[in-house]
Simulated assay, not measured.
Amino acid sequence: MTHVVTDNCEQCRYTECVTVCPVACFRGDGERLFIDPDLCVDCGACVPMCPVHAIVDSFDLEDDQQIWIGVNQRRAKELPTVRDRSAPLPTAPDRRAALGY
């Protein structure tokens, strides 16, 4: 399996993770990021880069988070690659605080 982006990314869209991805597997829309499971090599370099702990190894997902495997797979097919760091959403600091990070 691969890593997935969970709902912690919503209202944040921090992009530090894309800068360390060796295979450019991140896809994104205006609200959040997703990981293309067909490209992810499961290196884990992105995990410590996410300030809201949104990236998780699919094996470590809780039962109620399993939905994110399919969501990442589906949305990755629809969205463009994100390779460059950009400013997070204006709501990111409040979302980060609400998540306790």
Rank of each mutant, 00 (worst) to 15 (best):
T2N: 02
D64C: 05
F59N: 11
S58Q: 13
D29W: 03
E16L: 09
G28R: 14
P51H: 04
G70M: 01
G70C: 01
V18G: 12
D84W: 09
P88C: 03
A92H: 12
V52A: 07
C25M: 10
I55Y: 11
F59V: 05
Y14H: 10
D64Q: 04
D84R: 13
F34R: 06
D64G: 04
G100T: 05
G100M: 03
D64T: 10
A76S: 15
G44Y: 02
L33W: 12
R27D: 01
L89F: 02
I35C: 04
L89C: 05
P22M: 04
V52Y: 03
R75Y: 10
P22T: 03
R95V: 00
M1L: 06
T91F: 07
C21I: 10
R95L: 03
D42I: 05
R74D: 11
Q11F: 14
F26W: 10
P51R: 13
R96S: 07
N72K: 04
Q11P: 01
T81W: 07
N8P: 02
V82A: 02
V20G: 00
C21K: 07
N72P: 01
D84Y: 12
G70S: 11
F59I: 01
T81P: 00
P51C: 10
V23C: 09
A92N: 10
Y14G: 12
D38Y: 02
T19P: 02
A87T: 09
S58G: 12
K77P: 00
A97K: 15
N8G: 08
A98P: 01
V23L: 11
N8R: 11
R83L: 10
Q11V: 00
E10Y: 12
T6N: 07
S86E: 15
Q66C: 02
G100K: 07
D42E: 14
C9D: 15
C21L: 07
C17S: 08
V71T: 13
D36N: 14
C50P: 06
A97L: 12
P37F: 00
A98S: 15
G100F: 02
V71E: 12
V41C: 09
F26A: 00
Y101R: 15
Y14N: 14
C50G: 08
F59Q: 15
I69G: 00
L89G: 03
P88F: 06
C17I: 04
E62Y: 07
V41F: 04
R96F: 01
G44A: 14
L33V: 15
M49T: 03
L39V: 04
F26H: 09
E10C: 02
D42M: 13
T19Q: 09
A24N: 12
D63T: 06
E31K: 01
Q65R: 09
V56L: 07
L99P: 05
C50F: 05
D36H: 10
C46G: 05
L89I: 02
C9W: 03
A76H: 06
L89R: 09
R13L: 15
L99H: 13
V56R: 14
T19L: 10
V18K: 08
D63K: 13
A24G: 07
S58V: 07
H53C: 13
A45R: 03
D42L: 13
T19V: 08
